[in-house]
C-alpha cells in the first residue's frame, strides 16, 4: 500500500509540472440579448476552435467533462438560473468557467427615482433601472448608472400594493475601474400611516479581493417575511475608503447598477 501511495504522489507531481507547461483554453463566449427575460431567455455559447467542446451546467455546479455538452442554443425559463460554461479540448488545459445568471420579470414597477448618477454614466436616467436591459460587463455600456456619491437612493413605485419579499439588484464589480459592490444595502418600505420609509432589513457586503476582470453580479436580498407595499426604497452605501490591497486605497469607489427587480412570495 505504501508503494501505491508513493506512486500517486509522484504522478500528481508530474501532472502539475506538465500542466504548467501547457497552454490553457480561453473561456467560451456567452451570447444573449439581456440577462433579463419575461418568459424565456435564449443563450448561445460560442467557441470557434477545432477539437474543443463546450460543457455547461444549469444547477450551479462547476462544469466538468461529464457535464452536458453544448450543441444548440439554450432556453431558460426558470428565474435565477445560472449558466456556467467551460471549454475542454485534448491538447490544452480546460478553460476557466464563465457564467451568467438569468433573471425573470418581477412585480410590475410603475416608475423609479434615483440619486443623480455621475454625468459620465447616466444611462437614460432612473428608468434605466427598470428597462430590462443589462447584464453587460462593459463599463461604458449605457445600461449602467454609475455613482460616486456616499449613498445611492432608489425609490420604486409599484402600480398597486403588493406582497414584497425579495429584491434583485444588478451590480458590476470591476476593481480595475474602481467599481466595488456597495458596503451595505438597506431596504425600506413606505408606511402610509406614519408617512415615512420604514427600514426592513440591511445587508453588509464583503469585498473579495481575489477577482480579476469585470463581473456582472446580480445580488438578491430576501426579507424574513413579506410585506404589503406600493413604494420601496433601496439605499446603497458606497465603499468610502478603498481597502489597502487596491491601487486606489483610501479613495472612494464607484457603484454601478443596471437593473432592479422586486418579487413577492414565490
Amino acid at each position: 500500500m505504501k508503494n501505491i501511495h508513493f506512486l500517486i504522489v509522484f504522478l500528481s507531481n508530474v501532472a502539475v509540472l506538465s500542466a504548467q507547461d501547457a497552454f490553457q483554453l480561453a473561456p467560451p463566449l456567452l451570447k444573449y440579448p439581456s440577462v433579463f427575460f419575461t418568459k424565456e431567455a435564449k443563450i448561445d455559447l460560442v467557441f470557434a476552435e477545432p477539437n474543443t467542446q463546450i460543457h455547461y451546467t444549469l444547477n450551479g455546479e462547476e462544469p466538468t467533462e461529464n457535464a452536458q455538452r453544448y450543441t444548440h442554443p439554450l432556453s431558460i425559463t426558470k428565474n435565477f438560473t445560472t449558466v456556467k460554461a467551460r471549454v475542454f479540448g485534448k491538447n490544452y488545459l480546460p478553460s476557466d468557467v464563465v457564467q451568467a445568471t438569468f433573471i425573470k420579470e418581477g412585480l410590475p414597477i410603475k416608475s423609479a427615482e434615483t440619486t443623480l448618477p455621475n454625468p459620465k454614466y447616466k444611462g437614460s436616467g432612473a428608468k434605466t433601472l427598470i428597462d430590462n436591459e443589462g447584464g453587460k460587463t462593459t463599463v461604458s455600456s449605457p445600461t449602467w448608472l454609475g455613482f460616486q456619491t456616499d449613498t445611492v437612493d432608489v425609490i420604486l413605485n409599484l402600480h398597486k400594493k403588493e406582497k414584497f419579499k425579495k429584491v434583485l439588484i444588478g451590480l458590476l464589480r470591476d476593481y480595475g475601474s474602481w467599481i466595488f459592490l456597495p458596503e451595505k444595502i438597506a431596504i425600506y418600505a413606505f408606511d402610509d400611516k406614519k408617512n415615512y420609509f420604514q427600514l426592513l432589513d440591511n445587508q453588509i457586503f464583503n469585498q473579495s479581493k481575489d477577482i480579476k476582470g469585470s463581473f456582472y453580479t446580480p445580488s438578491v436580498l430576501s426579507l424574513k417575511k413579506s410585506i404589503k407595499t406600493d413604494k420601496i426604497k433601496i439605499q446603497l452605501h458606497v465603499v468610502k475608503q478603498i481597502p489597502d490591497w487596491h491601487v486606489g486605497k483610501g479613495n472612494r469607489s464607484w457603484i454601478f447598477i443596471d437593473e432592479i427587480k422586486v418579487y413577492g412570495d414565490e
Binding site: 501505491i4 501547457a22 485534448k90 490544452y92
Partner: peptide, 19 residues
Amino acid sequence: LGAMLTPLHRSPYGQYLAK
C-alpha cells in the same frame, strides 16, 4: 507505471501539448 496511470488518473494531463 503506465498500467497504473490509467485507472488511477483518468485526467489526461500527460496528453496536453507542451507549449
